[in-house]
Design a protein around this nucleic acid. Structure first.
Lengths: 229, 229
DNA sequence: TGACATGGTGTCGGTTCGACACTAAGGTTC
DNA sequence: GAACCTTAGTGTCGAACCGACACCATGTCA
């Protein structure tokens, strides 16, 4: 199977920066390359776009195939088109970033055929291609976006404590926040539903659980409302 | 000249949303298509990416070739990849938006071989392909970005009055602003240099001219400073 | 039952923000 | 040259918002 075009054209790929949060750090999912170029190096999950799928679909397919990840928050990041970013031939890459609930995905990523691992964002190995640039851009975007869009919840399980939520913001923004002021702000958004449950199996007073009120958010979003932390 | 690949791949194009501001409105530059599909319809300036140029270079080349526009503020917007967005074949388009000083570019756009014209953003004709989606996305991005990045100046001549600057913000944001509060805010940024000149040939008291202090801005930018209006 | 760990709560001063109206200067007209 | 027209340019005040700050409550474990 091959195909002929009148003019040469770049190959088109997608690459994904998948963020997850554990107790310690904000982490990125990387896959170890098995083939040249950059065999043995860590790289972002990704691959070539097929003719019958959109870019978003290609990104989701690669996440599924390479990391066993489904149903995540996914957003287009930027398109990288340096002429020599791939030594084999011209490859333009449409990049995405994804936010996953790490606890739920840690296993599948690790048990996939290819070697996959989570790395703390300030302790990354050297990456293949221009993937370090892509990760940098993704972190910058995430830091900007988390302040005015409610995406922090995407990194947590459905039910979470306020302390967990605060930790998300502290890890993403890279700075400590005041507990009382933080709680005032999230309460002011009106987007948290207080549950009649508390966390389980902790060796201290158990914290109340909350959940994100997506329905209210979507209503407010239409009215041009801005979420702010 | 033709080329054969092992796997089929989408064609890759760039399209540009060029914004300009006149006395009345925020406008977008459109080109009338001469060939099918969508012959006779207005469309964004753009074309296919060549193998030896980056995406940014392709966007600038198309602006130069199709509209005679050079040296403008240019930023990547989004990459559109719906499977059927072009009826001929699969075409993925990396889109950009540009800000031009309209007075300086009105002529060159009009005298180009192809028919080109400026349209007010809330009075656009029907566009070819998915170009209406692209324009919508560009307007949304511009509205968001103008609030925290000093890009309003890109739409004005080097020397401008505070009233002109205020009009930029009013046109872009689509809402009137208070003159005194606006002046307080721009003064607070410390990014305007007050010149010893006033505007010429006006039938009333002449306003003082200002210019944007790019050097100071670049210093502050490195320190993570945020410009806000 | 005492020690330990985290949960959960309110005040106050400083800053910022938006609403608001008049005089100044220059050109034009009669 | 006097009156008029148009836009330039300037400050206050009350409300809302923001950040800094410390202690008691509740549950587990030894």
């Amino acid at each position: 199977m091959s195909v002929t075009y009148k003019h040469p054209r770049p190959a088109l790929a997608v690459d994904c920066v998948v963020f997850g949060l554990d107790e310690e750090d904000l982490k990125v999912l990387l896959i170890r390359r098995g083939v040249e170029p950059f065999a043995g190096r860590w790289a972002l999950p990704g691959g070539f776009v097929r003719l019958d799928e959109t870019l978003d679909e290609a990104a989701r397919r690669e996440l599924r195939e390479e990391a066993g990840i489904e149903k995540v928050y996914l957003e287009q990041l930027y398109t990288f088109g340096a002429v020599d970013r791939d030594p084999r031939e011209r490859v333009v890459s449409v990049t995405y970033y994804a936010l996953v609930k790490l606890a739920e995905h840690a296993v599948s990523a690790a048990t996939d055929a290819r070697e996959a691992a989570w790395f703390a964002i300030d302790d990354l190995p050297r990456l293949a291609f221009d993937h370090e640039d892509i990760v940098d851009k993704a972190i910058a975007r995430l830091r900007g976006k988390v302040r005015y869009a409610p995406i922090g919840f995407e990194l947590l399980p459905k039910k979470f404590t306020l302390t967990q939520l605060q930790r998300v913001y502290e890890r993403v923004l890279g700075q400590e926040l005041d507990k009382r002021n933080f709680r005032k702000k999230v309460a002011a958004t009106g987007l948290l539903i207080e549950l009649d449950e508390v966390e389980q199996d902790v060796a201290h007073r158990a914290a109340r659980l909350y959940t994100f009120d997506e329905k209210t958010y979507r209503k407010l979003e239409k009215e041009g409302f801005l979420f702010e932390i």
